Computed example of a mutant assay.
Amino acid sequence: MNTAPHRAGHVAVIGRPNVGKSTLVNALVGAKVSIVSPRPQTTRHRLLGIATFPEGQLLLVDTPGIHREQKRAMNRLMNRAARGALEGVDAALLVVRAGQWDDEDTLAYDALRDAGLPVVLVVNQVDRITDKTKLLPYLAKVSEGREFAGVHPISALKRSGLEALVKTVLTHVPEQPALYGEDEITDKSQRFLAGELVREQLMRQLGEELPYATTVEIERFVEDGNLLRIGAVIWVERDGQKLIVIGKGGERLREIGMKSRLQMERLFGSKVFLETWVRVREGWSDDEAALRAFGYND
Score class of each variant (00 low, 15 high):
A4M: 12
P5F: 08
A12M: 01
A12N: 00
R16H: 06
R16I: 02
R16S: 04
V19D: 04
G20L: 08
K32G: 04
K32D: 07
K32R: 14
R39C: 09
Q41D: 09
T42V: 04
R46V: 01
L47F: 04
G49P: 05
G49W: 06
G49H: 04
I50K: 03
A51P: 03
F53L: 04
T63I: 02
T63F: 01
P64K: 00
G65Y: 03
I66K: 01
Q70W: 08
K71M: 08
R72A: 13
A73I: 05
L77Y: 02
L77H: 03
A81S: 07
A82C: 01
G84M: 00
L86R: 01
G88W: 00
A91D: 00
A92Y: 00
L93S: 01
L94F: 05
V96D: 10
A98T: 13
D102N: 14
D103M: 12
Y109C: 00
L112A: 01
L112E: 01
A115S: 02
N124L: 14
N124H: 12
T130C: 10
D131F: 07
T133Q: 15
S143W: 03
S143D: 07
E144A: 15
R146A: 05
E147G: 06
A149G: 04
H152V: 09
P153G: 12
A156E: 06
G161W: 05
E163D: 14
E163K: 15
A164H: 11
L165C: 08
K167V: 11
K167S: 15
K167Q: 14
V169T: 05
L170P: 02
T171E: 15
P177A: 10
Y180E: 04
E182D: 14
D183Y: 14
E184V: 13
T186S: 15
D187N: 13
S189C: 09
Q190D: 13
Q190S: 11
L193F: 13
V198M: 08
E208N: 12
L210P: 06
T215E: 09
V216G: 07
E217Y: 14
E219A: 10
F221G: 03
V222L: 10
G225D: 08
A232Q: 11
I234T: 12
W235S: 10
E237G: 08
D239V: 07
D239G: 12
I246E: 08
G249F: 01
R252L: 12
L253S: 07
I256E: 03
G257A: 07
M258P: 03
K259T: 10
S260M: 04
R266A: 15
L267Y: 10
S270Q: 15
T276G: 09
T276I: 15
W277I: 06
R279V: 13
R281N: 12
E282F: 10
E282D: 13
D287Y: 09
E288A: 14
E288W: 11
E288P: 15
R292T: 09
Y296K: 05
